[in-house]
Design a protein around this nucleic acid. Structure first.
Length: 433
RNA sequence: GAGGCUGUAGCUCAGUUGGUUAGAGCGCCAGGUUGUGGUCCUGGAGGUCGUGGGUUCAAUCCCCACCAGUCUCCCCA
């Protein structure tokens, strides 16, 4: 039997909650995606859709040659002309599109949002799949701290709209081109005497990107970190001011945050302000969303002009886990307005034609395709949670009057064929309230 | 990439201290007389007991490998 490949899953009409695996049903995905889009639109972000595959080179250059993503966690498609990659994230692709289509020419700062699948070639874990789904925003062309605060405000507004308030916003600044080399040098100087205490990965990072050492979780290394140089002592005055102003804006918006000087990111393109939104009830996968400023990315991937940029990305699977933890109740499945129960061949023909008429009048109509017994049809109507059963047999055909049975109250009445649309529409509106 | 746990019907699980036809609940299908669902009763379908090897007279049960899921480490988009 064929099955979904490792780390991927089918989204079925019904939620799969088998204890070992939890995959929300398609209606829940639509609900979540719809809400997310709605909030992002309210902030003025417009959707941008890019291909699922991109040139390997774009990702390598954008995300960074030394990152884990590029070094070992991508799905690569080899073709004779060029290597492609299933996109591991969407920031570099969006930047590519921005440059390719000269979107700066639309004028002013550009606000984009995206939502769709991304891929990682890692071993799957809870809330971490090989095909996963992300949404996020990219705010391009605005370099001021207000843009940073605006991006963060949008992020929190989304989680607020789902009633998820048990979150922690951590924020830091990685500084600018002036700051970075100095601080990296200071870190190297600091760690050099402790070489023998560092793990293999940390030693590699010491060469490639010492900032990443701050990310370590090893308790031994963490104790070293307490005396490590702080980035706040190395920030250029403009970086310092920028961060302070972002914080000031967050204060104005009453958005709580924690300044965390150990917060760094695994992607090379970040510069300046970075942040992460995490939740306590997500187990080992605590991050809901992460982002920051990446003012250098545009030029890294070929822009002739600098592109000031701020953005974040969030995982939909993680959002679902948070919703589950918070006991979020999803809207119930839409009820059919009418289930037509037809008895006999002539009635079936009538029902089939009538269903199309009722649907054209915007009613949600279902009926039996299997020629089953009346009892089976009634059961089906009940299972679908139809509001009413519209019953038609020989008698009704003869009298041109159908039976409308309310499946909630069990009351039923006869209605002339010509009046059905009116009767059913008013019934449907009535039950909605 | 490393380690732990798990894998029996569509779902949740029981079971065989290795031995002829593997069970339950829910779900599904059909009945409970002539055209009425949600409750109830009866019956039925559905499993090569994750896959492949091995040990054995005999394996779903023991051993190994693989696959998948899950948790932890690693890491994080």
């Amino acid at each position: 039997m064929f099955q979904t490949i490792r780390g991927t899953f089918d989204i079925l009409p019904d939620t799969q909650d088998s204890g070992s695996q939890f995959v929300p049903g398609s209606a829940n995905w639509q609900h979540v995606e719809g809400r997310v889009r709605e909030v992002m639109s309210r902030f003025g972000f417009e959707e941008i859709r890019t291909p699922t595959m991109e040139p390997l080179k774009l990702i390598a250059r954008g995300v960074g040659q030394t990152t884990d993503i590029v070094q070992k966690e991508m799905f690569v498609v080899q073709r004779s002309d060029e290597d492609y990659v299933l996109r591991p994230e969407m920031t570099a692709p969006v930047m590519r599109a921005y440059i390719q289509h000269s979107l700066a020419q639309r004028g002013g700062a550009q606000r984009f949002y995206y939502l769709g699948p991304c891929f990682r070639a890692e071993r799957p874990q809870k809330g971490r799949f090989r095909q996963f789904h992300q949404f996020g925003i990219e705010l391009l062309g605005a370099d001021g701290p207000r843009a940073d605060a605006e991006a963060i405000a949008c992020l929190l507004a989304i989680y607020d709209s789902f009633g998820i308030s048990e979150t922690r916003l951590r924020i830091n600044s990685l500084g600018d081109a002036e700051t970075r080399p100095k601080y990296c040098e200071a870190l190297r100087d600091y760690f050099e005497p402790f070489r023998d205490k560092l793990s293999e990965t940390s030693l590699q990072r010491l060469e490639a990107n010492p900032l990443r050492i701050l990310d370590t979780k090893s308790p031994e290394e963490r104790t070293l970190l307490t005396d490590a140089p702080r980035i706040s002592n190395y920030l250029s005055s403009s970086s310092r001011t920028h961060l302070d102003e972002v914080k000031e804006h967050l204060d104005d918006l009453r958005i709580p945050y924690f300044e965390d000087e150990l917060l760094v990111r695994g992607i090379d393109y970040y510069t300046g302000v970075v942040f992460e939104l995490e939740s306590d009830d997500l187990g080992s996968q605590s991050a809901l969303a992460a982002g920051g400023r990446y003012d250098g990315l545009g030029e890294d991937v070929g822009s002739k002009q600098p592109v000031p940029a701020i953005g974040w990305a969030a995982g939909i699977e993680r959002l679902f886990l948070a919703l589950q933890a918070s006991g979020y109740s999803f809207p119930e499945r839409e009820r059919p307005d009418v289930y037509i129960v037809a008895l006999g061949h002539e009635s079936q023909k009538w029902a089939f034609a009538e269903a199309q008429r009722l649907r054209a009048a915007a009613l949600h109509v279902e009926f039996d395709l299997l020629g089953r017994s009346m009892k089976a049809q009634m059961k089906e109507a009940n299972r679908q949670r139809a509001r009413v059963a519209l019953i038609v047999g020989e008698t009704e055909l003869a009298s041109q009057r159908a039976i409308i049975r309310d499946l909630d109250t069990s009351e039923q009445k006869e209605v002339e064929f010509g009046e059905l649309i009116n009767a059913l529409q008013s019934h449907s509106e009535h039950s909605d309230s």
